[in-house]
Amino acid sequence: MNLPPDKQREMLRQMLTIRCFEERASADYHAGKIYGVVHCYIGEEAVGVCSALEQGDQIISTHRGHGHCIAKGADLKRMMAELYGRQTGYCKGKGGSMHIADFGIGMLGANGIVAGGISIVTGAGLAAQMDGKGRVAVSFFGDGASNAGPFHECLNIAATWKLPMLYICENNMYAAQTSAAETHAMPDVAGRAAGYGIPGVVVDGNDIFAIHQAAARAIARARAGEGPTLIECKTFRWRAHTERIGQPDFRTEEEIETWKRRDPIARLRGQLEAQGALTDADWQAMNKEVSATIGDAVAFAEASPFPAPEQALEDMYAA
């Protein structure tokens, strides 16, 4: 793939940012500074469809949403402040980890309901089509969500109306404790595209270039008015479904270790080094920079005030 070295390094940097953000979110969750629940994206950082998008394109995410936010360009400070429940957070402390949105950058929100975002972002795709400016909309969702009604209803509608949509199934092989093998009649979610008469593509979800390429093709098709594409990225989460302790995890050590050896970040780093596009010093510097940014985000969150209790009554209705 012929992406300029700068762009490739930027992709690596973004994946590293996602990983470090998640490591910090996990640590701060266990330290009691973040409440409720956190679903980490570690191991899935390559699903970098956003690197192929333009400003003005819109995405929607899931309960495992931090990675998509970061990839779309969200402000780490306001993200971290939201996790910390602070007034300066993206949702003024009303959303938390499962509900971060930045509508300004086209990130229409994480969603606490499995498959809950698919139809909302399909509406954004309909709006993009009516605008006629060649913008696209992207729905990220898991293997679990692909078994829910909205997936099927929306693929049919998007295919029928030729909406400029990308449906990105992040198949990490599990929905909470339950394996996809137990819940899917066909192993490839992408195969369902045939039922809607649209392209369905399976890609290695730990290979950011493969994903970028598949996304770029789907985006070109969408912008040309030819309709949606279903892309299935086979990947794996390294951590448990959530950071809450005491929840069962039926995945074997061996399975997890196998996938850790397919680390998408190590892979991209290796590719860049082999091309001579990244030195060890570059890598060290990148790590330092990223960890400084995460540190700044945490400092910002910690220094930010909690909302005043009465602010619970604000933003009920729009003027």
């Binding site: 698919i118 139809s119 909302i120 509406g123 309909l126 709006a127 009516m130 909205p150 929306c154 049919n156």
Partner: peptide, 23 residues
């Protein structure tokens, strides 16, 4: 005149509303 998919369409209306339309 839509497919009979009220669940999806109810959400599509939300997404289009958030993108500048008044469905």
């Amino acid at each position: 005149a839509t497919p009979i998919a009220e669940g999806a369409l109810t959400g599509i209306a939300i997404g289009a509303a958030g993108s500048g339309y008044r469905p």
